[in-house]
């Protein structure tokens, strides 16, 4: 398979078939927390795409030029957590200084990315899949795009939920979780497409 085709395969599977939120059930916390409001959806998706791409690049470099040569690959989880946490703090400072409206829209959700398991997952899976630097970056960016897609789609579902009148015991989070499950089932429709499309 050519390089370009492999990148396309990564992108397609990260956005659709292997979507972190709706297929692999990673990062459910921000998925439920931020999807109430379209504007914060966009902000959160943007921040996650940015952080994931950056984190993929930085952690790949650290793994291959620091951890691997010293035989410290068993430290990857703790080092990655440390790097990602610092990175998110850095992004927060930059946003506060230069993009004030986005900072206001994200509010308490920006620090949440620090502990967002999707960001950690993408960096560790990059290593497990033996991706090279470019592939890692594409993987990170498209995983973020997949997250954003799920968030925006589900935001629409929640808008419809607001008008619906579920039974009293289902009101609030329970009906939201049911809706999330149904949304996730729709993504099963993509299963198998990626392999048949690119092989």
């Amino acid at each position: 398979m050519s390089d370009a085709a492999k990148l396309l395969l990564i992108a397609f599977s990260m956005i659709f078939t292997e979507n972190y939120v709706l297929v692999q059930f990673i990062a459910i916390c921000p998925f439920l927390g931020v999807s109430k409001n379209f504007d914060s959806c966009i902000g959160m998706s943007g921040a996650v795409i940015f952080v994931m791409t950056l984190a993929s690049a930085v952690t790949w470099t650290i793994y291959h030029f620091l951890l691997d040569p010293f035989g410290l690959t068993y430290l990857q989880t703790i080092v990655f957590i440390l790097v990602i946490a610092a990175l998110v703090q850095f992004v927060e400072i930059v946003l506060k200084k230069y993009i004030k409206p986005l900072y206001k829209a994200l509010g308490i959700y920006l620090p949440l990315i620090t502990t967002n398991c999707a960001v950690l997952a993408v960096t560790i899976l990059n290593i497990d899949e033996n991706y090279n630097f470019l592939e890692s970056c594409v993987d990170g960016a498209t995983a973020g795009i997949g997250f954003g897609l799920a968030l925006i789609l589900f935001c629409g579902v929640r808008k419809a939920l607001e008008r619906a009148k579920p039974p009293k015991c289902f009101e609030g989070l329970p009906i939201t979780l049911v809706a999330a499950a149904l949304t996730s089932m729709t993504f099963m429709g993509f299963a198998g497409i990626a392999d048949n499309l690119f092989h």
Binding site: L66, L67, L82, A86, F90
Partner: peptide, 13 residues
């Protein structure tokens, strides 16, 4: 290594 990475991150912040 871990301390070094932490130190670099801290300095950056």
């Amino acid at each position: 290594v871990l301390g070094g990475v932490g130190l670099v991150c801290a300095a950056l912040l």
